[in-house]
């Protein structure tokens, strides 16, 4: 259930007046997007749930500071993004100091989610590889790409959510795509297109 800007503003005002039920309306409207961002950022369902809960609680306690001219959904992205970055920093610090991690701690879990019809066209292996490639990106590049591709935010909204300039956001997304392509080239198992075409159509020029 998506709220438009006007509805969102009205609901936020009700929350500011102490209406808890109104906050639930905001929660229902944005929980999937918040959770999706956290999931793509962290690559782990438990962490994503934890971060999402944290983000909503912080939003609830800080709703008085929320400016009415902003979108609540963008504000939620920003809170979630900051918590995710913080958590990734802590995780990285822990993994740098942990001997266990050097001895082969399992990588971030790749969520096994039910595919959409579009994804059915892509092999399961490829989808997993893309997700693993996403995990390999620096957090800020990953966040920008996820907000664009998963949350379908505009460049301006991503800029507002991440506190970066719009030009920076475009640059980050572009670099994220390039890095992801490089990752796929390095780690993917490729089928020779020419041979494949030849087998199918008998018109191989290889």
């Amino acid at each position: 259930m998506a709220l438009d800007a006007e509805e969102e503003r009205a609901v936020v005002e009700r929350v500011k007046c102490g209406d808890k039920a109104a906050f639930e309306v905001l929660l229902i409207a944005s929980q999937n997007d918040v959770y999706a961002l956290a999931l793509k950022m962290l690559g782990n369902q438990d962490d994503a749930l934890d971060v999402s809960q944290d983000a909503f609680l912080r939003a609830y306690t800080a709703i008085g500071k929320f400016r009415a001219d902003a979108r609540f959904s963008v504000w939620m992205y920003r809170i979630t993004y900051n918590i995710c970055l913080d958590r990734l920093r802590k995780t990285r610090r822990r993994s740098e100091t942990s001997l266990e991690s050097e001895e082969g701690e399992p990588e971030l879990q790749i969520p096994d989610l039910s595919p959409l019809p579009e994804e059915r066209a892509v092999s399961r292996e490829t989808a997993k590889l893309v997700r693993a490639g996403l995990d390999s990106l620096p957090p800020k590049l990953r966040a920008a790409l996820v907000m664009r591709e998963v949350n379908e935010l505009s460049y301006a909204e991503i800029a507002a959510s991440t506190g970066a300039r719009e030009g920076t956001v475009k640059s980050r997304i572009s670099r994220a795509r390039a890095a992801l392509a490089e990752y796929l080239r390095s780690n993917g198992t490729f089928i020779d297109d020419n041979r494949h075409n030849g087998e199918e159509g008998g018109d191989s020029d290889a």
């Binding site: 929980q31 999937n32 918040v34 959770y35 999706a36 999931l39 793509k40 749930l49 999402s52 989610l113 039910s114 595919p115 959409l116 579009e118 994804e119 066209a121 892509v122 490829t126 989808a127 893309v130 997700r131 996403l134 790409l145 996820v146 591709e149 998963v150 795509r177 992801l180 796929l184």
Partner: peptide, 12 residues
């Protein structure tokens, strides 16, 4: 490829 792989419907 990215879109197909990432734009899966994620439900909280």
């Amino acid at each position: 490829l990215i879109s197909a792989s990432l734009r899966e419907s994620v439900s909280a």
